[in-house]
Computed example of a mutant assay.
Amino acid sequence: MTGASVPGAGGVGSGGVPVPARAARRPRGRVAVGLVVAWLMVGLVLLWAVVPGLFTAYDPIAGVPAEKLRPPGAGHLFGTDAVGRDVFARVVHGSVHSLSGALVAVGVGLLLGTLLGLLAGAAGGVADAAVMRVVDVLLSVPGLLLALTVIILLGPGTVNVAIAVGIGSVAAFARLARAEVVRVRRTDYVEAAFGSGGRFGAVLWRHVLPNSLGPVVALAALQFGAAILAISTLGFLGYGAEPPTPEWGLLIAEGRNYLATSWWLTTLPGAVVVAVVLAAGRISRSIGRERG
């Protein structure tokens, strides 16, 4: 039947180009509420890390024994722990440890992974095969297990945990960067740059690398949330910050012995971790669509 519209099908854009159904139904200029909430969540946590004094006046280290194990309320938004410390204050002040660790982890993975992917995709041949075989081996090992192996070599501590998590993400960055470099390397404008006498390093720096970073940046946003989760997991296992440092994973670990009677000690810090990880994932998907 000519001219009939199919339910769920997309429309036709300018020039007769088909428009996907989901895009056709979305009004232009409309802001995704979920994306706004994600940015607000990430922005709030960043403010916690930069200016924690704006959000709480309580000391995250010193407690008041008479106030121990108080449930959430007006005086203590997240309640208090077993030694009378304000849990919300510890979550706010602990954000700097978790976020800075995640930034270091993403930086390590992004830098090393992109360099390996650029080398493999641009050089090709034996170098490509050798690098990608190493990447395949790293990808075959679970990231948390690889991070634990690195921590055994480096020792526990916030910085070492961040480096270990970053090394565990190198393979994912390298594989994606290599695929993008190979794709861009075969385009006409890169071939023209080489044909006009451009030096190999200059063409890679000016043409190949900038046009290969879009999906890698989206992966970095996703890995930021995954790094927070991994660092919190390792902190929960006792490999991160030492007590009484208010680190998110350590906060959850400290409250597990009181889970039956004081649920807020683990539930509320855990909810903050989950919210930040989900927000980072939502931002990553947005960046991936914009650069795709």
Rank of each mutant, 00 (worst) to 15 (best):
M1G: 14
T2Y: 13
A4M: 11
A4L: 11
V6W: 10
V6H: 08
V6Q: 11
A9N: 13
G10C: 06
V17Y: 08
V17K: 12
P18Q: 14
P20I: 00
R22L: 00
R25V: 02
P27V: 10
V31H: 01
A32V: 09
G34K: 11
V37K: 00
A38G: 10
L40S: 13
L40T: 09
M41K: 01
V42I: 15
V42Q: 05
G43F: 07
V45K: 01
L46R: 00
A49S: 14
V51K: 11
T56S: 15
A62M: 09
A62H: 12
V64M: 11
R70D: 12
R70V: 15
P71M: 05
H76L: 04
H76P: 06
T80M: 09
V83S: 13
V83R: 04
V83T: 14
D86C: 14
F88A: 14
H93M: 01
G94K: 11
S95R: 10
V96L: 13
V96R: 15
H97Q: 10
S100G: 12
L103P: 02
V104G: 01
V104I: 15
A105L: 07
L111A: 12
L111G: 09
L112V: 15
L112K: 01
T114M: 03
G117Y: 03
L118E: 01
L119H: 04
L119P: 04
A120R: 00
A120K: 01
A122L: 09
A122E: 00
G124A: 08
G125E: 05
G125A: 07
A127K: 09
D136H: 07
V137M: 13
L138W: 10
V141C: 10
L144A: 11
L146G: 02
V150S: 05
L154R: 03
V159R: 12
V161Y: 05
V165S: 03
V165P: 01
I167Q: 03
V170N: 00
A171S: 09
F173M: 09
L176V: 07
L176D: 04
L176G: 02
R178M: 09
E180C: 10
E180W: 06
V184M: 04
T187N: 06
D188F: 03
D188V: 13
D188I: 06
E191L: 12
A193T: 05
F194G: 05
S196E: 13
G197S: 08
F200I: 03
V203W: 07
L204H: 07
W205I: 15
N211I: 07
N211A: 14
L213I: 02
L213V: 02
V216K: 08
L219P: 02
A220Q: 06
A221N: 06
F224V: 01
A227S: 14
G235I: 06
F236H: 07
L237E: 13
L237C: 11
G240D: 04
E242C: 00
L251N: 05
A253L: 04
G255T: 04
S262E: 06
L265N: 01
L265M: 08
P269R: 05
P269Y: 03
G270I: 07
V274T: 13
V274F: 14
A275I: 07
A275V: 06
V276I: 15
V277E: 01
V277H: 07
V277Y: 08
L278I: 12
A279P: 06
G281I: 03
S284N: 10
R285M: 02
S286D: 04
R289S: 10
R289H: 12
